[in-house]
Design a protein around this nucleic acid. Structure first.
Length: 481
RNA sequence: GGCCACGUGGCGGAGUGGUGACGCAGCGGAUUGCAAAUCCGCGUACUCCGGUUCAAUUCCGGACGUGGCCUCCA
């Protein structure tokens, strides 16, 4: 651990408590997060775990060193929804080709969306289809995992499927706080005749000739939903690792079943030490759904006026998401976006003209707040204090700290003040500003205002100030929001 | 029906057994050629009903409300 770094504490769904985080191996802290099923553009709800766990990834890298953290986020590219989408969108293509088109296009879009949201790439982003059959490199795969479960008496073949036998695991249901009796009592679980227990779930199912499939000891088929994460996490992180994350809705059945498969296959008493789940999101006070017409994709927000009549910078979406603690529900609204945008503009303004930031890490108080179960909101309070300091006359050090901290958090330093990263000031703006300064110094206010208005029409806002030392006039500009 | 979250001022949103964070918006002041930006200052709150306690927004119980899961939806 880097000297002076705070102790992390994280809320663990498994124990329903906030606990000090102690890595299994501080030289390789390992985290797995359930990634997208690539059948359609990711919606804003999908963005939440991406952003939340990216923040955690950054924090872990800061505390343990960037090279000592391994973050895996899978891509689910085998799924019946994908098959349906492929058949719909490419009816004239062979199914496999159509599926490939759908998954590649969607995965590409997801990568672009996630990047725009200021998220780092995970260390590994494995695809489920690469882990169905035994691999040349010997990494764990789904078929081998399933075979092991059968061998060990945790799974059985019935009705052409391979099913996990939940009664073979005494503490099945520990994560979600369910027991088998509760589940049995529920009348809504479909009772398939071939299941020994209604709660048994599919590890492998048969595919028809029209469906995608792989040849296995149990015939041509495809994996169940949960087994892919058991295989891919084991492949990159080992049988037991530190943190497993995802959305609240995945607790049951997905994560419960992952735990069952992994532990029973590996003979371990745990799969991951800490289980973290982000809360859900509503849009303008309502559940997001296609029928309500408030279904918003990340891409819609970034590129169209679907919400609030304007496109929003990815940094704004990121802040709007982080403004609320990750376990609390969020009402995603235009008002929230506006507030996030104005806050980000404030911070970026305050950080402007900070000198070189080499070797300056994030502000310690911000890190400390984040270390308390990712309390971003308290971190933002600390940022506000730094920004206030930066705006004072002797704020140079604070400007540097603020800029470095913004970058640490995944925000740009001036992305909202200019037109984005790597943006260069057009010469005509510099010329206009210089001409206006000349006019001002000659007390020709009419000309100065004319130039200011002209720039305003181009979407450039000016802000005048005076050098506190010399009294010399200065002018800053930024893109009007 | 079972399980699990949440309910704080106009809005966002932390936190705590006892001097009512913080931000946005609003108001007042400073500064400014005028603006903008910035700085300083100010207001309103803890869903309801019981209980524990010297003291509860904070602990316990209940009610009501909202949301989630139990249907391969983050």
């Amino acid at each position: 651990m880097t000297s002076g770094s705070p102790q992390l504490s994280l809320y663990n769904t498994l124990t329903r408590k906030k606990e000090p985080f102690v890595p299994i191996d501080a030289g390789n802290v390992r985290m797995y997060v359930c990634g997208p099923t690539v059948y359609d553009f990711a919606h804003i709800g999908n963005a939440r775990p991406v952003i939340v766990f990216d923040l955690l990834f950054r924090l872990l890298r800061h505390v343990y060193g960037a090279e000592h953290v391994t973050y895996v986020r899978n891509i689910t590219d085998v799924d019946d929804k994908i098959n349906a989408r492929a058949a719909r969108d490419f009816p004239d293509l062979p199914l496999n080709e159509a599926i490939r088109r759908v998954t590649e296009k969607t995965a590409r879009q997801f990568a672009a969306d996630v990047k725009a949201l200021g998220s780092l790439e995970p260390t590994y982003q494995p695809r489920a289809t690469d882990f169905v059959l035994p691999r040349p490199d010997g990494k764990p795969d789904m078929v081998t995992l399933i075979a092991t479960l059968i061998e060990r008496g945790h799974a059985y073949v019935a009705g052409g499927e391979v099913l996990f036998d939940v009664t073979s695991m005494p503490d099945y249901g520990a994560l979600s706080g369910r027991n088998l009796e509760d589940n049995l009592a529920g009348a809504r679980i479909a009772v398939d005749a071939h299941k020994k227990n209604p709660a048994d779930f599919v590890l492998w199912k048969q595919s028809s000739a029209e469906e995608p499939g792989w040849d296995s000891p149990w015939g041509r088929g495809r994996p169940g939903w949960h087994i892919e994460c058991s295989a891919m996490s084991a492949a990159y992180l080992g049988d037991v690792f530190d943190i497993h994350g995802g959305g609240l809705d995945l607790i049951f059945p997905h994560h419960e079943n992952e735990i069952a498969q992994s532990r029973c296959a590996h003979g371990t008493h745990e799969m991951a030490r800490v289980w973290m789940h982000n809360g859900f999101l509503q849009v303008e006070g309502q559940k997001m759904s296609k029928s309500l017409g408030n279904f918003v994709t990340i891409n819609d927000l970034l590129e169209t006026g679907a919400m609030g009549g304007q496109a929003w910078h990815g940094d704004v979406l990121r802040l709007a998401m982080l403004m609320t603690h990750y376990r609390e529900p969020i009402d995603f609204s235009v008002k929230r976006l506006e507030e996030a945008q104005s806050k980000l503009v404030d911070w970026q303004r305050a950080a402007r003209d900070g000198q070189s930031t080499e070797d300056i890490g994030p502000d310690a108080s911000v890190v400390e707040m984040l270390a308390d179960d990712l309390n971003f909101h308290r971190a933002s309070v600390a940022l506000d204090a730094i920004a206030r300091q930066a705006n004072r006359e002797d704020g140079q050090a604070a400007k540097q700290a603020l800029g470095a901290t913004l970058e640490f958090l995944g925000f740009g330093r001036d992305t909202l003040l200019t037109s984005g990263d790597g943006w260069e000031e057009p010469p005509h703006i510099a010329a206009a500003v210089a001409a206006r300064l000349a006019a001002l110094n000659g007390k020709d206010f009419a000309e100065a205002d004319r130039i200011r208005n002209e720039l305003a029409e181009q979407g450039i806002a000016l802000m005048d100030s005076k050098d506190p030392e010399t009294g010399e006039r200065r002018t800053k500009w930024e893109v009007k929001r």
